[in-house]
């Protein structure tokens, strides 16, 4: 249970970090908070040749408001965003999701962008980002691009990130007037990965439901109004469309039931708390 050996780079500039990734040929890997990567190193599920520590790069340590988005840099720890005084005003969905994300002790180190890069199918932040319709800013030595969160997550811990790229920031759309949201989760113990997590948004465009823990990536879909005759069928169709599987944590049937019940609860609450 000890990591295999690796080179370690603590770059002073972002350019230096990007050069290391470009020249690393897939052997180089970003280390941020280490809350997912170090367990994988310890268990030797990951054996990178070089770790590039991005946590001392000041340009990445920013939380900024840009138009109707909150932009969170790759050096921002989960606890830092959670502690923003206006979080529940601008990003109420995140404020509701944070208490479910691991523990105080892991949020103190883990980063927001690291969770998005890790792309665990049960993870709360990728779910919130996809449900909000956010974007991911990627950067390599030679190019910059922005990808919609929904296109970024490809499958089980698989993303659109290229070998030479890093996530520079993620962009969360701010809550708008007339908007309501809700977050629900079932896990074995508080702080464990979700068996099923639901994020709901209600606004003038209708209802949106994001679901994590069932398919191999977070999924988001639209639903008719709760009092519409078609609602029950619609949410049932969604539950069946997510390829739920049996595993050690829960049966596929239980997961589908959770999608229906937690999903309904979350949508009800989101509709009720529209501002």
């Amino acid at each position: 249970m000890k990591p295999a050996s690796f080179d370690f780079l603590c770059p002073e500039t972002l350019e230096e970090a990007l050069a290391a990734l470009a020249e690393g040929g897939g052997e180089a890997r970003v280390i941020a908070g280490g809350q997912s990567l170090v367990p994988m190193l310890n268990m030797r599920l990951a054996r990178p040749g070089l770790l590039v520590d991005i946590m001392r790069l000041d340009p990445l340590r920013k939380i900024e408001t840009s138009g109707d988005e909150i932009v969170v840099g790759a050096g921002v720890r989960q606890a830092e965003l959670e502690a923003q005084p206006d979080l529940s005003q601008h990003l109420p969905l995140l404020a509701a999701a944070f208490p479910w994300l691991g523990h105080v002790q892991t949020r103190a180190r883990g980063t927001v962008c690291g969770s998005v890069a890790h792309a665990d199918p049960s993870a709360e932040l990728p779910l919130a980002l996809v449900t909000l319709g956010g974007t991911v800013s990627l950067r390599s030595r030679s190019r910059r691009r922005k990808v919609k969160a929904d296109d970024f997550f490809i499958g089980m811990m698989a993303t659109d990130l290229a070998e030479d790229e890093m996530i520079e920031s993620v962009h969360f759309p701010k809550a708008r007037p007339g908007w309501g949201c809700s977050f629900r989760e079932i896990g074995r113990r508080h702080g464990d990965f979700a068996i099923v997590a639901c994020a709901a948004i209600a606004d003038d465009d209708g209802l949106r439901l994001g679901i994590a823990g069932v398919d191999d990536r977070p999924r988001v879909c639209r639903l008719p109004a709760l009092d519409n005759d078609q609602f029950d069928d619609a949410i049932n169709d969604i539950a069946w469309s997510l390829n739920a599987r049996d595993d050690i944590h829960a049966s596929a049937r239980y997961r589908r039931e959770l999608v229906r019940s937690l999903g309904r609860e979350a949508l009800k609450e989101a509709s009720r708390c529209r501002t």
Binding site: I31, G34, V38, P39, L51, A79, T106, A108, R109
Partner: peptide, 20 residues
């Protein structure tokens, strides 16, 4: 669990190089 800059954190998930 130890405190890193006042915050409780996992020593087993922290590389010594990260705490310079």
């Amino acid at each position: 669990t130890v405190q890193i800059d006042g915050k409780p954190a996992r020593a087993c998930l922290t590389l010594a190089q990260q705490i310079r």
